[in-house]
Every structure is written in structure tokens, then in C-alpha cells.
Amino acid sequence: MSSTILRRAVGAARTASCARTFSSSPAARKDIVQELYLKEIKAYKAPPAVKDAHVGVVKSYTMPPVPKAPALPADLASELSAYDASEPSAVEKKAAPSADAHAELADGGAEAFLELLEADVPPEGHH
């Protein structure tokens, strides 16, 4: 009994290796995801277009008013002389010096610092 099974298996293997069968139809494999995707695309209904959907969302544009050209005063010379004669604001003159300003003046002030910056650096001796 085992020999008959063996003979049949060998015979089946010979016929399978000798004869190649070609199918003219492609493999019947279907992609489930693709089928679902296509089904949903075909079933999709676009919402109806609403007329005047932009109303209330889009603001209308209006051009800004055209600026006027500056006009020179009638008596320009007197205004310039009045500006030249005016003194700086009184607030700047009467401002009390702060404690930092006193410490800066005691150490030599800004003038001493600027002189230090402008002074030449002495060359170092060669080793």
C-alpha cells in the first residue's frame, strides 16, 4: 500500500515538472483596500455649491484716501528763527544728577574714561 502511494507521488512529481501550465487569465488576487477605496470614491457625492458663500467672510476693499501734500507755512523765516532762539527743555537742565553720576565723577568721569581709551597701548617687552 505504501508502495502504491509512493509510485503515484513520483508519477505526479514527474508530470508536474515536465508539463508547465500557463494560464491566460491573470491571478484572481484582489486588493481589499483598493476595492474599498474605489467603492467609497464612486459613492461620494459632493455637497451642493452654495451661492454667495463668501458673504460675511470676505470684506470689501476700499482704497485709502489720497494723502495731501504738506504745505509750507506762510512765514517760514520767522518760524525758523523762533526755533533757533528756543532753549532746550527745562526738564533736561533741572534734572538732578543721580548717585551713579556722582560715583562716575569721583572716579574721573566719562572724560577720563575716553582719554584712557584713546591713549596708546605701551608695547610689551620681547621675551
Rank of each mutant, 00 (worst) to 15 (best):
S81W: 03
L116D: 10
V58T: 06
L80R: 04
E124Q: 08
P122N: 11
R14I: 15
A90Q: 15
L114G: 00
S60N: 13
A85D: 11
Y37M: 12
D31A: 12
D100S: 07
V66A: 01
P48M: 14
A119R: 10
T21R: 08
R29D: 09
A101S: 03
P67K: 00
Y83W: 15
V121I: 14
D52K: 03
S81N: 05
P67N: 02
A12F: 15
P64C: 06
T15N: 08
D52R: 02
F22Q: 03
Y37K: 10
V55A: 02
F113H: 06
R20N: 13
K59W: 09
G56W: 00
A16Y: 14
R7L: 02
A101H: 01
P73R: 05
R29Q: 11
A90P: 13
S98R: 04
F22R: 03
P97G: 06
A95Q: 11
K59E: 12
L116Q: 12
P122T: 08
A101T: 03
D120P: 06
A12V: 12
P26L: 07
L36F: 05
A110H: 10
G125R: 02
K94P: 00
V91Y: 04
L117W: 11
K68S: 01
G56F: 00
P65M: 04
R14S: 13
V58E: 02
S78Q: 11
C18M: 12
A112C: 03
A77N: 05
D107Y: 10
A13Q: 09
A16D: 14
F22C: 02
R14P: 02
A110F: 12
E104C: 13
A110D: 08
M1W: 09
L117Y: 09
R8N: 01
Y37H: 09
D52L: 02
A19Y: 11
R8T: 00
E115R: 06
H54D: 00
A71M: 14
A95S: 09
V66Q: 00
S98H: 03
P70G: 04
P122D: 13
S2Y: 09
E115W: 04
K42G: 07
Y44D: 06
H126G: 12
A112Q: 04
D75Q: 07
V33A: 14
K93Q: 15
F22I: 07
D31I: 10
L105R: 14
S81T: 07
A106N: 12
A12S: 14
T4G: 13
R14T: 15
H54Q: 01
G11Q: 12
G56I: 01
G56R: 00
A49G: 12
A53G: 00
A74P: 00
T15P: 03
P67T: 00
A90N: 15
G11W: 12
E124W: 07
I41F: 10
E92H: 06
A27N: 04
S2V: 10
P47A: 07
E104T: 13
K42Y: 08
V57Y: 01
C18A: 11
V10T: 08
T62H: 04
A85F: 11
C18S: 11
D100H: 06
K45R: 08
A28W: 05
P70W: 04
D52G: 01
H54A: 01
L6D: 11
A82Y: 02
R8L: 03
K45L: 05
E104P: 10
K68G: 00
M63Q: 06
D31M: 12
G56S: 01
